[in-house]
C-alpha cells in the first residue's frame, strides 16, 4: 500500500511540475523542449520494446507508425476539426493518430503469422519505406515538402499525461496473462501454442498496441515541432528508437525509460561537440553492446513496476525439495 502512495505522490508532483514549469518559466525554453522530447521518446521506446523486447521480433518500422500517427492527428487539427478552443480537440486528434497507426500495425502483424526474425524485420522495413514514399506522393499533405502550420498544442502537461498513460498501459499489458502470452511467444512459439496461446491473436494485439502508442507519440511530436515531413520519419528515426531500447535493455519497461532518458540527455550534453557528437553517440552504443550486450537493465525491471497482485502470496516458511 505504501508503495502506491509514493508512486501516486510522485506522479502528482510530476503533474504539478509539468504545469508549473512552463507557467512560471522555471526552466529555459530549450530545457523545456528537451523535457518534452524526452516524454515522446519514452513513449516511442516503451512501445517499440513491446515488439522488439517482449515479443522478441526485430521491428525496424517504428518510425513508419509514428509517421502515420503524426500525419493523421495533424490532418485532423489543421484541416478537419474546428479551431474552436474545445478542450477535446487535441486529445481526440492524438487518439485518432494512435488508432490510425494501430490499423497499419495490423498490416505488419499479418505477415508476422508466417515469418519471424530477419524476414519479418524486412517486412517492417519495407513497410516504413512505403509509408514514407506514400506520404511523399500525397500532395494534399504537402508531399515531400511536408505539412506546415500545425498548432503547438503539445504542452508539457499533455505530454506528461500521455507519457504516464502510455507507460502505465504497456506495463499493465505485460503484467497480465494476455501479455505473458507475448513473452511466451518470444521464449518458444511452439510451446506457447501448446499451452493454449492463440499466437496469431497475440501477435496482432502486440503490434496494434505498440503501433498505437507510436502513433500517439507521432501526434504529440507533430504538435510540438509544428512541422512534419516524410523525411523526419526515415530510417534514422527508427535507428534512434532502436538505440534507446537496446541501450536500456530489451524486455524491460524501466530499461526503455532509462534508455530514452540517457539517449535524450546525452544527445543534448554532447551537442557542443558538433559533428563529433554523432560519432561519439554510436561509439558509446557500440562500447555498451560490447561490455553489456543486454543493455543497462538487461531483462530485469524496477521491482516497483510489478503490480502487487502479480506477486505470489507465499506461506512464511518455505521448504526446498
Amino acid at each position: 500500500m505504501n508503495r502506491h502512495w509514493t508512486i501516486g505522490l510522485l506522479l502528482l508532483a510530476g503533474a504539478a511540475l509539468s504545469w508549473a514549469i512552463p507557467r512560471y518559466e522555471l526552466l529555459n525554453p530549450y530545457l523545456q523542449a528537451t523535457l518534452m522530447y524526452l516524454g515522446i521518446n519514452i513513449i516511442l521506446a516503451t512501445s517499440l520494446n513491446l515488439i522488439n523486447g517482449y515479443l522478441g521480433e526485430f521491428s525496424v518500422g517504428h518510425a513508419g507508425f509514428m509517421a502515420v500517427g503524426a500525419y493523421a492527428s495533424a490532418i485532423l487539427t489543421v484541416m478537419l476539426l474546428p479551431v474552436g478552443a474545445a478542450a477535446w480537440r487535441f486529445p481526440l486528434a492524438i487518439m485518432a493518430g494512435g488508432c490510425a497507426a494501430a490499423l497499419t500495425g495490423l498490416v505488419v502483424a499479418i505477415p508476422a503469422f508466417r515469418t519471424r526474425g530477419d524476414y519479418l524485420a524486412i517486412v517492417t522495413l519495407a513497410f516504413a519505406m512505403i509509408v514514407k514514399s506514400a506520404l511523399e506522393n500525397i500532395n494534399a499533405v504537402g508531399g515531400p515538402r511536408g505539412l506546415l502550420g500545425i498548432e503547438g498544442l503539445s504542452t508539457m502537461p499533455w505530454i506528461f499525461a500521455w507519457t504516464v498513460l502510455s507507460v502505465w498501459v504497456i506495463r499493465n499489458f505485460v503484467y497480465s496473462n494476455p501479455g505473458r502470452g507475448v513473452l511466451a511467444i518470444r521464449e518458444d512459439e511452439v510451446a506457447a501454442e501448446l499451452m493454449g496461446v492463440n499466437t496469431r491473436r497475440v501477435k496482432i494485439r502486440a503490434f496494434m498496441i505498440a503501433s498505437f502508442f507510436a502513433g500517439v507519440a507521432g501526434g504529440l511530436f507533430a504538435h510540438l515541432l509544428q512541422f512534419i515531413s516524410p523525411r523526419i520519419f526515415d530510417i534514422t528515426k527508427t535507428t534512434d528508437i532502436l538505440v534507446m531500447v537496446y541501450l536500456g535493455g530489451v524486455g524491460s519497461i524501466g530499461g526503455s525509460i532509462v534508455g530514452a532518458s540517457m539517449f535524450t540527455v546525452l544527445q543534448e550534453c554532447l551537442r557542443p561537440l558538433g559533428v563529433w557528437r554523432m560519432v561519439i553517440m554510436p561509439l558509446l552504443l557500440v562500447l555498451l553492446m560490447l561490455f553489456r550486450p543486454r543493455g543497462i537493465m538487461g531483462l530485469r525491471d524496477f521491482p516497483w513496476f510489478r503490480p502487487s497482485v502479480e506477486c505470489p502470496q507465499r506461506p512464511p516458511e518455505t521448504h526446498p525439495s
Binding site: 505473458r180 513473452l183 511466451a184 521464449e187 518458444d188 511452439v190 510451446a191 506457447a192 524486455g251 531483462l299 505470489p312
Partner: peptide, 9 residues
C-alpha cells in the same frame, strides 16, 4: 521447452 527466461511462476 520451458520458457527459459521467464520466472517459474
Amino acid at each position: 521447452r520451458i520458457f527459459k527466461q521467464l520466472s517459474v511462476l
